[in-house]
Design a binder for these strands. Structure first.
Lengths: 197, 197
DNA sequence: TATTAAATATACCGATTGGTCTATATTTTA
DNA sequence: TAAAATATAGACCAATCGGTATATTTAATA
């Protein structure tokens, strides 16, 4: 019964390409990073890209979708006790802000990759823009599940308030470099929770 | 002999170039729009750019700074009754959210140009990034003046809460296309004002 | 009016862009 | 082991990139 293999190593080159592209796009921007640089840094042949993605835009879309999947999986798996069932829901929401503060402090922090994607591909019907919007919707639903569970009077509104604060804090932290934004957002969240639960 | 400094000549071509660049950069992104397209659309010679700005980056910096000046002047002049001295300060803060809602509804709305600039020029010491951060600081001080005048217990914190909500609403509106974000942000602002005044 | 700054048109540059093609080699799987 | 994916190197492409050079013309001011 030799079945416990981790995963068939299919498309190793493309996966490495995706990881490298994710890093470079996030650190320097989608238009600022060229194909040649990505494949050189990934140590991969040019055709490894075009055999798997029809264009740079589609590669970017795949990167964005990959990040979204990873983020949501991490949140739902219980990253930083957010989904910890023993904690009261309000505490789990506030834990999110602590988590964001830690994120802002990381040296690689460069803001929200979805906000950046939507900014660089402003057309609402562009696949990359749509992928970014999709993620924000997933995030909202994730928050709404918690506010509902917390017994909020208006779960959707409270979830949107949390999302507004998280989004604002991330944007300000990236623009001004002031990671205190997370702490300030947490204070605001505490007050909104007190009013809305 | 202290002479009156020579009146700067009008540089009509360059000013038209700046206006066109502002529009194109905002609508489609800084890296996505090339020099040739800008000068073609402005109907201006290539050298009109390079006689006034040493590089594309410096042109972008000038554009950003110009937008910041216009925005701040408009706010301080009393755009949409925000600086209307007859209104109570709390109402003036809330008027800002109504104003943002109207902005989100404009067909040309594409988010915050400063957030986009900071996203496309992520290096904190890049002149364009610094210019964007500068504007956010000005905005914060503008808000802080009002919260102070309103007699807030912690004017700085309240101002940052307002900024977080405005920033978050703008980011979400651009990414998801949902202009309801402004209305939701206003509701949150009402609650935070009630708690903080 | 003479001077001079500002704007013009156009040709040019090397580098880079995203993308294609081909022919060979390496893995994976049936 | 053979067949079928997958990855390889690298030449090649037209188009565009940001930026420079030069010589000419337009327009504002002293």
């Amino acid at each position: 019964m030799a079945q416990a293999e981790p995963r068939p190593r299919r498309k190793r080159g493309y996966e490495k390409l995706l990881r490298t592209a994710r890093r470079l796009f996030y650190q320097r921007g989608f238009h600022a990073v060229g194909i040649s640089e990505i494949i050189a840094e990934a140590g991969v042949a040019r055709m490894t890209l075009y055999n798997n993605a029809a264009s740079k835009d589609i590669l970017i879309e795949a990167v964005i979708e990959g990040v979204s999947i990873d983020v949501m999986a991490w949140l739902e798996r219980g990253g930083a006790s957010i989904a910890e069932p023993t904690l009261p829901p309000a505490q789990r929401l506030l834990a999110l802000f602590d988590l964001f503060e830690a994120w802002f402090g990381e040296p690689e922090f460069q803001g929200c990759i979805f906000a950046k994607a939507a900014a660089e591909f402003p057309a609402h019907d562009h696949p990359v823009h749509r992928a970014a919007a999709r993620h924000k919707r997933r995030l909202f639903e994730f928050l709404q599940d918690i506010t509902t569970e917390a017994g909020a009077r208006q779960p959707a509104m409270l979830a949107e308030h949390m999302l507004l604060l998280l989004e604002g804090a991330t944007a300000l932290a990236q623009q001004t470099g002031a990671l205190i934004a997370a702490r300030r957002a947490r204070r605001a969240a505490e007050q909104l929770l007190a009013a809305g639960l």
